[in-house]
Structure formats: C-alpha cells, structure tokens
Simulated assay, not measured.
Amino acid sequence: MPTPASLVADLVLEQVGSRDDGDAPAGTPARDRRTVVLGIDGRSGAGKSTLASDVVTILERRSPYRGRVALVRLDDHYQGWTGLRAGAEAVRPVLAALGRGEAGSAPTWDWHRSAPGPVRVVPAPGRPHPRLVVVEGCGATLLHDHLDALAWLDEPEAMRRARAEAREGDVSSWWKTWARQEDEALALAAPYRYADLRLTASE
C-alpha cells in the first residue's frame, strides 16, 4: 500500500513535474527551469514535518529534482505563539524570488529567546537553485498563489495533541491559542478547496 510520502512524491513527479518539464524548451539548463513549489499543510501534530522530510528524501533521489530540493519549514518563521499568519507571509517573498530564478530571504524566529532570529537565505549559499521547494507548516495554504501542489494532512484532535505532547511535553500553554490561529488561516484559505491530496499520516 502506498505511503503518504510516496503519494505526495508521485503527485509532484507525475502531475506537477510533467507539466513543469513540458513548459521548458528542450535543452533548457536546470538552473533556468521553473521552480516547482509543494505545500504541506495541516493542524499542529498532524505529521507534517515527518511527511515533508520523507517526501524530500524520496525526491532528492529522483529526476528531475535530484539534489535540487529545498525544504522551508514555517516553524522557523512563525513570529512566536501568536505569529502563525505573519510567519507564513514572511516566506512569500522567498517564493516570489525563487520563481524569478533568484535567491530569497526571510526572517526567522528564535524560539528560545522569543525574539527575531537571523535572516535565512534560500537556497543556502553554495547550494544550486532549487527545482523543487517544499513548504511545510500550519498556514502553508495561505501561500496558495505560489503553490503548484498542496497536500493537506487530516488527523483527529486527540491524536494530534497526543503527538504534540509526546514531542514537546505539556502543550496546554499554547494549544488553544495556536488552534484559534489555525481556524483563522483555514477561514482565509480553505485547504479543502486547494488541496490536491488529502491524507492522514497514519494511513
């Protein structure tokens, strides 16, 4: 039975990838081809981070994306426990720049200091321009106008909370605050409208 990661990878390779290759004239250098952007969204604890890592592992080994995959985790850009939307929007200029064939930059957030962190550049210095960017995190659907494909992860709240607590310990200080922001993001950009795949990480 296909895993969620293999289903998402197949979506990129068979649907988005084929369209992307068809748009580029024969002989176009890889650096000049359009960057494909995949979004992976879902509520906290749905399994997005693991799914994104697994998808990157698969696609890093496959043509046309071999060695040219960049992973952008929105967790690195949320501006604190009330900054879900601001963090997602901070990544928008990165995707716009990558679409022009340029490097993009976005501020990060230092969760230990509860303060802005260093600016992150994509691709990282010394890395080739990516052919595929995977944007993973709550609110990725807010960037739907930059996405070529979107996978939405569904899980019951009890399962999601248990996962979050196994990873981080007691989540009572932020769970409801974050859930309200998830609700707001869902209202602004309904993932069921944009998602190419709806999955559960436990499938």
Rank of each mutant, 00 (worst) to 15 (best):
A158S: 13
G137Q: 10
G169K: 07
Q79S: 08
V133A: 09
R113K: 14
H112T: 14
Q79L: 08
P123Q: 08
Y194I: 01
G80N: 00
L11H: 11
S53R: 13
R43F: 14
Y78W: 07
R160K: 11
L199Y: 02
R193S: 02
W152E: 13
S49C: 01
A70R: 09
P93L: 08
L13H: 07
R31V: 09
E14W: 13
A26W: 05
L142H: 08
A164V: 04
L71P: 00
G101N: 01
K48M: 03
R120W: 03
M159I: 15
Y194L: 05
P107A: 10
G27K: 14
S6E: 15
V134A: 04
P107D: 08
V171Q: 10
R131Q: 11
S44Q: 10
G80M: 00
W109R: 05
V37T: 06
G169T: 13
L38S: 01
A70Y: 07
L132H: 10
A185R: 02
E182L: 01
R43E: 15
A24H: 14
M159T: 15
V135M: 10
P64R: 01
W109F: 03
E182F: 09
R61V: 06
P4G: 06
D32N: 14
A9Q: 11
P156W: 08
D23R: 15
R167D: 09
L147A: 07
L59I: 00
W178L: 05
W152Y: 15
G42Y: 06
P93Y: 03
A26M: 10
Q181Y: 03
V119R: 14
P123K: 10
R131I: 05
T108F: 02
L147E: 09
V37I: 06
K48S: 02
P25D: 04
D148P: 07
L143F: 02
V119D: 11
R127C: 11
R127L: 12
S49I: 00
L51C: 04
A97H: 00
G17R: 04
A103W: 06
L98G: 00
A189Y: 04
V12A: 11
T28H: 06
A190I: 02
D183R: 12
R163F: 02
W81G: 01
G80A: 00
A88V: 02
T200D: 03
A103C: 11
G104I: 07
R68W: 01
Y194W: 14
R161V: 09
S53N: 10
A162S: 12
H112F: 13
V135R: 07
Y192W: 15
R31A: 09
T3A: 11
V134R: 08
T82F: 11
E102T: 00
I58L: 09
P123H: 10
V91G: 00
W174K: 07
H77A: 04
L38C: 05
R113I: 13
P191Y: 06
A106S: 04
H112V: 14
P123W: 12
D23M: 13
H146S: 14
D20T: 15
V119P: 13
L51I: 01
D10E: 15
S172Q: 08
L143R: 04
G80Y: 00
V91L: 00
L74R: 01
D170G: 12
A164W: 02
P93D: 09
E14Q: 15
H146K: 12
D148Y: 11
V133Q: 07
I40H: 08
P107Q: 05
Q181N: 06
R167Q: 11
S49A: 03
A9R: 08
E102Y: 00
R193D: 08
